[in-house]
Amino acid sequence: MNIFRLCGDMTHLLSVVVLLLKIHTIKSCAGISLKTQELYALVFATRYLDIFTHHVSLYNTVMKIIFLGTSFTIVWYMRHHKVVRQTYDKEQDTFKHYMLIIPCFALALLIKTKFTPLEVLWTFSIYLEAVAIFPQLVLLQRTKNIDNLTGNYVFLLGAYRGLYLLNWIVRYFTEKGYRQWITWISGIVQTALYADFFYYYIKCWRNNEKLHLPS
């Protein structure tokens, strides 16, 4: 495991910590898209089906359990917690799950490495992760006052994807015969979705302004 992969995973973990901090400590999920969080829960549920059958390392297994547990915890908080659920911007978070889930599943049936249930679901999770941030980005654009924790959460998620790109470059040059086209192309698409957000995040940060996205 190279440094970029480790930093990518840690950034991903940190993004979850930031989100849980907002939800658990401040008891608010304002500006957070439940649609995106539900899609992430589905991503992890379909990707980590191999958790007990396919052992890579203790590190991988522990991280899988953390991402599964936290993603479902976040969804539970936003849907059912007495205080937190009242801060959810339901009227603004209008993106339809099926508009992302159905095309991703169709694509997973068409383009995959092996036609087995586990492999198709794994591929589906890769495609779905690439676009799962979409409802969140739409919600950010509709939010007038984006708070720091929400802005930092999305920034950390984007940074995690960027670091994974660097990890793949390192692996390509250091591991013989290493290639994973499905993951690479999805990862590039996923990172590209953050480009616009990054531009405004850095611009506002440099000008010492509060983060706002043009609508």
Partner: peptide
């Protein structure tokens, strides 16, 4: 295209 690695990333 054939991917060559087992799924060892998160």
């Amino acid at each position: 295209t054939q991917d060559t690695k087992e799924h060892d990333e998160l």
